[in-house]
Design a protein around this nucleic acid. Structure first.
Lengths: 116, 116
DNA sequence: GCTTGCATTTCTGCATTGTAGGAATGCAGC
DNA sequence: GCTGCATTCCTACAATGCAGAAATGCAAGC
């Protein structure tokens, strides 16, 4: 993100997937595995879990997402989950990416035979 | 482009900018400098000309664009221009990128406070 | 109390893409 | 031949994309 705040293509998808699982209401549900599943089910984009995490980590370092560890005494087994959410900057970044592309697409729908 | 045909964020923008200058009617007008200008004027994305060319070159190697050199006896000075255009794969790639994102955005407009 | 199993995160390493800057090219005009 | 201009090409490095395997932490069965 060359200091102008431009994000990569996978970063954008991960941000959107994260926003979606949040939008479903349960804040607690947004962690690595669910983000990955959302990407796969909704966008048909099948990335490895390792790819999801490194993207998430890098975005946290840039301030686009934040994370916190789950409750200390989990009744379920496994490592403590790490819950993620978008920061304001994260929201701004997806908005910027979108409007940049929208401006380029504007008036082009017919010219490229994009199936609506 | 990990063989699944997914393109990077700049690749997508360059493809769209290229399509736009084509859509303006004059096929001859689509070369490095005009693509760069379109990106800057239309999307506000200011990349160096070197960045545009390496992106274009890499996409040509992947079959997303093709290029041909301009007329052999140019009355204007300067290196011969290299005219670019999208291939079918290029068109397909922007379409895929778009529909993937559209599916993730669907129903999210209100949830993220994206300004229309 | 050891072992197996499961859900999850973390680590490591490499491939691909993004990016700038400056060198090279080719012509015109002086 | 030198200067100027428009353009492409080359080089090198930084950032992002990506997968696979290792580690972590708990529970259950034995």
């Amino acid at each position: 993100m060359g200091k102008d705040g431009f994000i990569g293509s996978l970063e954008e998808l991960v941000l959107l997937a994260l926003a979606r699982v949040h939008a479903r209401g349960d804040d607690e549900a947004a962690y690595g595995m669910t983000v990955r599943r959302e990407l796969e089910e909704r966008a048909g984009r099948d990335v490895s879990i390792g790819a999801v995490y490194s993207t998430l980590d890098r975005m946290e370092a840039k301030g686009l997402v934040r994370s916190r560890l789950a409750d200390p005494d989990p009744a379920r087994g496994g490592r403590p989950r790490r819950y993620f959410s978008l920061t304001e900057e994260g929201v701004a970044a997806v908005g910027q990416a979108r409007s940049m592309r929208d401006r380029l697409w504007d008036g082009l729908e017919g010219a490229l035979d994009y199936p609506g």
